[in-house]
Write a protein that binds this DNA or RNA. Structure first.
Lengths: 261, 261
DNA sequence: ACGCGAAATTGACATGGATCAAGGAAGTTC
DNA sequence: GAACTTCCTTGATCCATGTCAATTTCGCGT
């Protein structure tokens, strides 16, 4: 498997060494707050394909993705499925004040969470304005992403959907690592074609066909089925039918900017 | 025009008389907090069709819808448009900490907002945990709605989309008024067929055809083009392909529950 | 190295919704 | 109350994507 198997000790590691220290909900905590979080947090890892929580189930934990990728998805009674969110490192899972989870949460790759008992976290939340602020900020970002995705689902063509997904993956990957673009941008997809289809509101067949078509047109190359090389990132962005709004001003192009880690 | 023309004096009215007093971000404010809000708030009304803010523009206000309906929508460079949110009374517009608005905001009907200067609101927000909590709560609700809509956009058929929209409109209407179901449920749509199409990721033609088809099948009746009568609400819900999850447990069926006003 | 199952690709065909086009209904202006 | 304009409906046709089916490739365990 391609995914780095970083295995973190459940309690040993310190928040200060945490890879998502500066990007998760705890980003702006004071050191005394961090100490308290450090005491009540727990790491837990799910293997690729494992279900972390079922829609409707009660979940007593909330927390952040430390490493890996997890998906949020909804299902209609007849089995049609739509992914409604992607959890990447530093993303938060769980809703303070509500145990019941609204979507199936599945580990797409091996995924490690930094978890808190929900009631403990809620108590902490009500004491700590900084974490409340970060959580609101994150939720607003999630809302923006969800709405951007609505535009994609409602109005973009299959080709544009695939391009948009690749752009997003490249950006989110670039925000973590830092891709020095020597001979193009290379990044991993992490997810299966089926997961892509679920995310984009397409079928696997259409995803596969469009990827083949983009390969033929030399917009992308496949190192292997899950690793994309993009010779010309701008060309890819063009094909994604980026919206005329200015939402993207808040995202980082992998080459140009990256949140300081 | 069908919309009630409640015209509120800009500064006269008191928060205590506000129609959204118990459902807006200020719902759980203390009376001293309310007094302060009362001093810094302003009512402002937009006529149907007027643009409240353009995507990318800087907006120095945030606030809540008091009466009316406004839409949030994104546009692709070539003009394809997708509505990404609907603002009904008590819904909040604006993002603390960011002036730039991500979507076009348009008054679908005559719409009155209760507005605050953004910096004033932010100052208030950082002092008032109760309003911060409400805002987080609202944002999480918005996120849930957006995700439910993603499922609709990605996976539902035209028929199911229309049914879902009608169910939503009926519910949101029912949460405000209280429909005593004598001879079926009657509610106004407020929005044009075009707005419906924008919301559902369809064309006007398809919206119109599906509405005609549902009329033919006696799932709905039209009192006039914008007023729907539903003889059997459950039948409508069935046609909406409600998801197998449990998200709906948090919404009120018009007949069964309604938030106390 | 072999074989198995899952994932991905490709082809042939079907269809739901878009597009193009025309006309009707309802509200507004002079 | 005639002429617009905007909104809505309906019909005919087309095409992007879904569906069904077969085959290939890849990853992994033995």
């Amino acid at each position: 498997m391609l995914v780095a198997r970083i295995t973190l000790a459940k309690t040993d590691a310190n928040c200060l060494d945490c890879p998502i220290r500066h990007r998760a909900v705890c980003a702006s905590c004071t050191s005394s707050e961090l100490e308290e979080l450090n005491r009540i947090r727990q790491y837990r890892t799910w293997k690729a394909g494992e279900t972390i929580a079922w829609a409707g189930e009660n979940m007593s934990f909330v927390g952040s993705v430390v490493t890996g990728v997890a998906t949020l998805s909804s299902t209609l009674v007849d089995g049609r499925r739509q992914m409604v969110g992607l959890l990447l490192p530093s993303d938060f899972l769980g809703r303070p004040g509500r145990g019941e989870v609204s979507y199936d949460v599945v580990a797409a790759t091996e995924t490690t969470f930094c978890l808190f008992q929900r009631d403990q976290f809620e108590r902490f939340l009500s004491k700590s304005p900084s974490i409340a602020k970060e959580l609101l900020e994150k939720t607003l970002d999630d809302l923006d992403s969800a709405r951007e995705w609505m535009l994609l689902l409602g109005r973009k063509t299959a080709r544009e959907k695939i391009a948009s997904l690749l752009v997003m993956m490249a950006r989110r990957d670039g925000a973590l690592h830092r891709n020095e673009p020597g001979d193009g941008l290379v990044f991993p997809l992490h997810i299966t074609r089926e997961a892509m289809a679920d995310y984009l509101g397409l079928t696997v067949e259409t995803v596969s066909r469009q990827i083949s078509a983009m390969k033929r047109d030399n917009v992308i190359q496949l190192m292997d089925t899950r690793t994309i090389r993009v010779p010309d990132f701008n060309r890819l962005v063009e094909q994604s039918a980026a919206s005329s709004g200015f939402e993207d001003a808040h995202h980082a192009l992998p080459e140009t900017t990256a949140k300081r880690a």
